[in-house]
Design a protein around this nucleic acid. Structure first.
Lengths: 247, 247
DNA sequence: TGAAAAATCGAGCGAGCGCTCGAATTTTTT
DNA sequence: AAAAAATTCGAGCGCTCGCTCGATTTTTCA
């Protein structure tokens, strides 16, 4: 009936990538743990006491990689700082050069995920707004590929949101709505142009969202079934396009 | 980007129920906390030391109600037995008359949710198998209404599955697949009768699932938007039916 | 009504938690 | 090569955790 869980078991098998994958290079460059941690560092420069950026980025990456690894089997609250020190290779005290308390570490990860989604989805290739059907396809594929590239991050943010401090939770909610608005805009433009037929645009945008999220929330299930990412993307696009097809 | 969270804020406003709601009386009778706890008790008679069934059911209900209430803002692991004693009105020691350790309590809740879904969805009105379109509509509506009636239970099972012991996790995964199979069967029968056109039945069944789950996972969002349950059900049915409509 | 049985209680136990801080080590500067 | 600065270290602090168990209260029934 439910259960996402244990999403990140074996290692990702590098799939033969179609050449025309959207934002291909961007996704690969911008979603490495190192690259993300460099951005986190920039956003939280004041909280991190280590001055050398290269060193700080590398260690923060090791810490966060340890969090994401351990969080596949335990909630964030269950992960002790001793576990974290052991898995990341730093000492207890060393950890506290990178955050002032455990909750800050949680917030660092959440905010980075939110910001990344927004930035990537708003960065559609020029001219795509003119073609709502193509734009929608691009949004669906890009969203799924982004969450694939940052899968442990998204699972973490999805599952741990409840435990965030109120401010961070409000921020996450707003971020969710922002994504939905991006989809609703495209749907509205398609209806205006007569290529889509949609009785309730907001509800439809809301229904597309969980179709995209299922790929990372239930990653283990699709892996077990042997569904490759391009098949999932094609399946979602086909399902959605038929559901909103114009007359 | 994500965030279910804080699903269960205000109290449920009793909605004007359409008379023909499926399993209407069953859902109301079988999904009260008392009724569910009576079933849990039966399944775990050996773990509970209190002999009088009426007493045991009432206290177990208070304990589980406390868990579900507290779990809307914290993970199960964060809920201390002292919190649980305070909110449920029992003493520390009293709690241990109803389970032998904290994990057992977790497992009790999960297994009951799994069993309930299976039992309810397999209990379609007689003759419905002959009409796949009607059967599919019944499955969608019944699933959503069941998860609405037991919303905190479903959110709990969904969010805490990761922390279950391996055996319980495997059981939950199997339960998820069983539900999907029920949907896949109906889709296959519809395709055979020529009323549905579906390129990949298993993938389609897999995509319908998150549409049903979104109602309880993101309950707060739909509440904030003022989307009533019948509108959500109608929206999902319309969306799915267009996506799989026959030629 | 009184004694046996059932149910409830909560202070106390060892263990593990988040976090600190002075000492030790490494890197940079002169 | 020595001094200064930056970084890393981990034992130890106070605290809360899950859980126990003998004392106490409530219920049952001859």
């Amino acid at each position: 009936m439910m259960t996402p869980a244990e999403a990140a078991e074996p290692k990702v098998e590098p799939e033969a990538e179609p050449k025309d994958a959207p934002s291909g290079t961007f996704l690969r460059d911008a979603t490495s743990t190192e690259a993300i941690c460099a951005r986190i560092l920039e956003r939280h420069r004041d909280r991190v006491s280590v001055r050398k950026p290269h060193l700080a980025t590398a260690n923060l990456a090791r810490i966060i990689e340890a969090v994401l690894k351990l969080s596949s089997r335990q909630s964030f609250h269950e992960i002790s700082l001793r576990d974290l020190a052991r898995v990341s290779g730093l000492s207890m005290g060393g950890l506290y050069s990178y955050f002032d308390n455990k909750t800050t570490l949680l917030v660092m990860i959440l905010t980075e995920v939110s910001e990344t989604v927004e930035a990537v989805l708003r960065d559609a290739p020029a001219g795509l707004e003119a073609d709502p059907a193509a734009h929608l396809r691009w949004l669906i594929e890009t969203h799924i590929r982004l969450t694939e590239a940052m899968q442990p991050w998204f699972v973490f943010a999805f599952m741990e949101a409840k435990g965030f401090p109120a401010a961070a939770r409000a921020f996450a909610t707003e971020s969710e709505l922002a994504t939905e608005r991006i989809f609703a805009d495209v749907l509205a433009r398609g209806v205006a142009q007569g290529v889509f037929t949609i009785p309730d645009i907001d509800l439809t945008a809301a229904l597309i969202k969980p179709l995209l999220q299922d790929w990372y929330v239930k990653r283990a299930k699709y892996r077990k079934r042997g569904t490759p990412i391009h098949a999932y993307i094609a399946g979602v696009i086909a399902f959605v396009e038929r559901a909103i097809a114009g007359r």
